[in-house]
Design a protein around this nucleic acid. Structure first.
Lengths: 227, 227
DNA sequence: ACAAAAGTGTTTTCTCTACACCCATGA
DNA sequence: TCATGGGTGTAGAGAAAACACTTTTGT
């Protein structure tokens, strides 16, 4: 066995997922009443411990899959929270991730089973530990990312109208965008593919559906929203 | 003692610092020949283990202070590296930080004592583990941050000329900037304070020195460089 | 007919960029 | 006097913002 490191402490390592969804023109977060002690029953992000054979990213994927039934989800590190007193009873280091999911795709039975609820971002309940900080930082990350790419699109169905996209951006940045200018700006990026289908449910006239084009998944650094 | 967590593994937790400096019109990194096994003698970022009473941020501060003699340094998380096989002999999770220091302020004796060297960013030696990845990510962070704020300024002395600032930005982005336009853009941000001193060493005419104004430390989200 | 969203076009404003030009001064 | 950086001004290109206007269709 290895002797080099024997003088140093070892810590529990967890991941916590800030799971964003979008519904009724507003951003929502999936929160859970914590199922085990300590602080059982208080609202928290969904998390789990990192097992011996997995990275934090893999652990976050697993947690996400276990709680929403979804795989291949947009997932990104937010930061690592390591204040020695962040949990009450023992020291746990937590790596926070944020995930963007299409709220209509997730497994509702699975989430209900654990008592999970979608909470509007603007009216969150009190959260355990430093989960509030994790959420703030995740939101800041998301806003920044959405300003440079169409990252936020993961929150919409695969096919969407420009109205839906605009409403999403309005929710993200808490401001309104001129409909005409928004359309021109987004289409000028050349990242969207116009489909032959129309959505007739949200307007009299009907609006064409769009989806992210193949080429779009790659490099797209142009600015969309001026903050 | 606490029983809730007893089923979960505990891991060694380290921090690694990507220490940026700026000298001779180019970005440099402070690297160390690793002083202990395994892989003793290979070049690496300076790091250390997180002790029981400190957060990762505190550990990074401590490491930075121990290696450069500097305190109150710009320091920011880059990301957490947790691949189970990232180190050869045992599992270590590492949180990478990046630091910006004024290369002329650090304690040269202290760094020399450990065999540390400043390496031009464009000609780095081979590094241990995933330290190369940490550096790439840190650089990307720095570039992005410098595009929105005057973050890079920490690499310069407290008083500097606009030529020095421009050269720094040119090194950061590996491109040139029009001298007149750069001056106007930077000054229009209202973040710099013009001093009554001049630097006579870098031009015949002499250039006024500037420093970051008090108000500037706060929110400054306007874009400086278009990427 | 009207309301509401879809979609297009125009005008104005602002920022970015390129570049011209004068200033000061050490060699 | 010449080269070099300091510093200011300006004209043109291009993007962003504001907004007018036409189309479509369910009620």
């Amino acid at each position: 066995m290895v002797e080099f490191y024997k003088d140093h402490s070892r810590y529990l390592l967890a991941v916590d997922c800030v799971i964003f969804g979008y519904e009724d023109d507003e951003l929502k977060l999936l929160l859970y009443p914590r199922g085990f002690e300590p602080v059982r029953g208080k609202w928290s992000l969904m998390g789990g411990f990192v097992e011996a054979n997995e990275s934090c990213e893999q652990a976050a994927c697993r947690v996400l899959q276990e709680t929403t039934g979804l795989q291949n989800i947009f997932l990104e590190q937010v930061g690592t929270f390591s204040d020695p007193t962040r949990e009450e009873y023992t020291r746990v280091i937590s790596v926070a991730f944020f995930a963007l999911i299409d709220i209509r795709q997730h497994n509702i039975d699975l989430t209900k089973e654990k008592g999970a609820q979608w909470w509007p971002l603007r009216q969150l309940p009190e959260l355990i530990f430093d989960h509030g900080q994790m959420i703030s930082k995740a939101l800041a990350n998301l806003q920044q990312k959405a300003g440079y790419s169409l990252a936020g699109i993961e929150l919409l169905p695969a096919k969407f109208t420009l109205l839906q996209l605009r409403k999403l951006y309005e929710a993200l940045y808490q401001r309104s965008f001129d409909a005409g200018n928004f359309r021109k700006k987004i289409l000028s990026l050349g990242l969207l593919e116009k489909l032959d289908e129309k959505n007739q449910t949200e307007s009299r006239k009907g609006a064409f559906l769009y989806s992210l084009s193949k080429e779009a998944r790659d490099s797209d650094t142009e600015r969309i929203v001026k903050l």
